[in-house]
């Protein structure tokens, strides 16, 4: 084995070690700069007011119809306008952002909840957000202190328009695209 080959090999080892380091750093970059922004279709902005208007009359009163009503009475929103993020707007974790899971997010003090809120006002299984016909609906799971959508207590599964505050205990959040 010639001197030159050894020299090349040992320099190659050093370069590869640094290469490994930089591959890790490159893979880590989403930690620093956040996830790459998703491209939304051009219609996303236009349909925003429509979604808010649809949600203005809240859930219908009759209990028997409660479950069917949110599905039957609303036109399904196109996929791209469905909120994908939950942003905590006030409370201890203010500013935290969560990517909404595919179909439901449970909220409560229990550690198996999707969003765990630990304060004195939250019940173990407090509420849940469900995706019905591409629309997020909040349901109160008989919590002691209640779930509030834009200030009024949620009694029945109620659609959550984007940007409307939902309050649970000392935490408020809203859904955003």
């Amino acid at each position: 084995m010639s001197e030159l080959t050894l020299l090349v090999l040992r320099l190659a080892l050093l370069i590869l070690m640094w290469f490994f380091v930089f591959v890790v750093v490159y893979a880590l970059r989403s930690d620093l700069f956040g996830q790459r922004a998703r491209k939304l279709p051009a219609t996303a902005g236009a349909s925003f007011p429509a979604a808010a208007a649809v949600a203005a009359p809240l859930a219908p009163a009759p209990v028997a119809a409660a479950a069917t009503a949110p599905i039957g009475s609303r036109t399904p929103q196109p996929d791209a306008t469905t909120p994908r993020r939950l942003v905590i707007t006030s409370g201890p974790r203010e500013g935290m952002e969560i990517d909404l899971p595919p179909e439901q997010l449970t909220i409560g003090r229990s550690s198996e909840s999707g969003l765990i809120i630990r304060d004195d006002y939250t019940s173990t299984h407090h509420a849940r957000l469900m995706l019905w016909n591409d629309q997020w609906v909040v349901q109160d799971l008989d919590s002691t202190n209640g779930t509030f959508l834009a200030g009024s207590r949620v009694m029945l599964p109620t659609p959550v328009p984007p940007g409307t505050p939902v309050t649970i205990g000392t935490t408020s959040f809203e859904l955003r695209r």
């Binding site: 996830q35 994908r84 939950l86 909404l100 469900m130 995706l131 019905w132 016909n133």
Partner: peptide
Amino acid sequence: QPHWVVDTAPIPVMASSS
């Protein structure tokens, strides 16, 4: 903790919920 996401794959919306 859903905000702990490293991968950038779009979240699939499942048909069963609708």
